[in-house]
């Protein structure tokens, strides 16, 4: 191995960088181990390599060299980036201040709204209590009025009863005799009062004519206490010719005061009143078949 070969094939650098093949390493080492020139070259190159690698690793580069590696437009870009960064920081700061003031304002408004809501809640509570009180008062008034109405109804009812009794008292009937029959079973009644204890479908009433026996035929109309006609029957004379006997349906009568009017047909065809017979019907019970 000669030095031309070593220089041309870069044995020194390749040996230090680990770029030689194993047989090249053996040959080169056998050469340089006794070659002062190659040893010196190896030492210098190795030290230089270590130094430049250390410098690159620690980036302890001189300022002039560093600046020379940075182009002008990169410096401009860096400056612009820095400026943008500062502007962004300032903008963020102002934005934060503004947001904070808005937040404080919103907090104040929230507090006001909360106070207002509390006032409204209290007011609605008071109104509800007042409403409940007025409702209770109204209920009491209604109950009082209902009671008054009931009392007045009772009064009216009692007055009606009293009036009816007074009317009945005023309408004092003339004496007359009645006879009622039910299925051929005759029984006597006291005057002015007919008690239908065992009424069935119908009953008969005999009216005394008191001498008015010259008329051709007779008719009896029954009116209740209100003056409404409840029944009307034609009837004939009894065998003796002193009374008329008239049958009525039991369903047409209820308990109460009735007025029976008897009329007779004259020979000229007109009707003549014979007499009015007030009486009281008392139904005490119904015997069922």
């Amino acid at each position: 191995m000669d030095h031309n070969e070593i220089d041309n094939l870069d044995f020194v650098e390749r040996y230090l960088m680990g770029g030689l093949m194993p047989d090249e390493i053996v040959r080169f080492e056998e050469h340089f181990v006794a070659c002062p020139r190659c040893v010196e070259q190896l030492r210098t190159t190795e030290d230089f390599m270590k130094g430049i690698r250390l410098a690159a690793a620690t980036q302890a580069v001189p300022s002039g060299w560093f600046l020379s590696r940075i182009s002008v437009h990169r410096l401009i870009l860096a400056g612009i980036s820095l400026l943008l960064l500062i502007c962004t920081g300032i903008w963020i700061g102002f934005r934060e201040m503004r947001l904070r003031s808005e937040a404080n304002q919103a907090k104040g408004e929230m507090a006001q709204l909360a106070a207002h809501a509390e006032e409204e809640r209290l007011a609605s509570k008071a109104a509800a209590e007042e409403s409940r009180a007025s409702e209770a008062k109204l209920q009491a008034t209604i109950e009082g009025l209902t009671a008054q109405i009931a009392a007045r109804e009772r009064t009216i009812k009692s007055l009606k009863t009293d009036t009816a009794m007074r009317i009945a008292a005023l309408a004092e009937p003339p004496p007359f005799s009645l006879q009622a029959e039910e299925r051929s079973v005759s029984f006597n009644f006291k005057p002015k009062e007919i008690k239908l204890k065992t009424v069935r479908a119908s009953f008969q009433i005999a009216f005394g004519l008191e001498g008015v026996t010259y008329l051709r035929e007779y008719c009896v109309s029954a009116f209740n206490s209100s003056g409404k006609e409840v029944d009307e029957k034609k009837c004939g004379l009894t065998p003796k010719g002193l009374d008329v006997v008239c049958p009525f349906k039991s369903a047409s009568f209820r308990n109460g005061f009735y007025r029976f009017e008897v009329e007779g047909l004259k020979n000229d065809g007109s009707w003549q009143s014979v007499g009015t017979y007030p009486c009281r019907i008392i139904r005490t019970g119904i015997r069922r078949p």
């Binding site: 650098e13 030290d47 230089f48 390599m49 270590k50 130094g51 430049i52 690698r53 250390l54 410098a55 690159a56 620690t58 302890a60 580069v61 001189p62 002039g64 060299w65 020379s68 590696r69």
Partner: peptide, 29 residues
């Protein structure tokens, strides 16, 4: 070792041609 780094930096700093500096860095580093 520290001095080696300093010396190399000095040498690189003395180089006026950027191409030569690039050459050394690319070849040895």
């Amino acid at each position: 070792e520290k001095e080696r780094g300093s010396v190399v930096l000095r040498i690189i700093g003395e180089m006026s041609v950027k191409r030569d500096r690039d050459l050394l860095m690319r070849y040895f580093v």
